[in-house]
Amino acid sequence: MSHSSHKLRLNPIACEAHGMCAELFPERISLDEWGYPVIAGEPISPSLLSHARRAAQACPTFALLVEKDKAPA
């Protein structure tokens, strides 16, 4: 039985490099030299999902999306 996993998707047009997301979810998000988030590609395990959601909710421009991964976990 496979349970669905999640991944982060960034809207690079909306992102204004506030950097909150990287602070709240360092397990998957780092910042590049200009302050824009670099998102690691690995799926987010259920144990990290709440961190991911918190980061997305903290983004002032709603640029960070937590989405269901289409591929089974």
Binding site: P12, I13, A17, W34, G35, Y36
Partner: peptide, 9 residues
């Protein structure tokens, strides 16, 4: 000039 990495990179 909408996306940071494109604009700066």
């Amino acid at each position: 000039r909408q996306c940071g990495p494109c604009l700066n990179g």
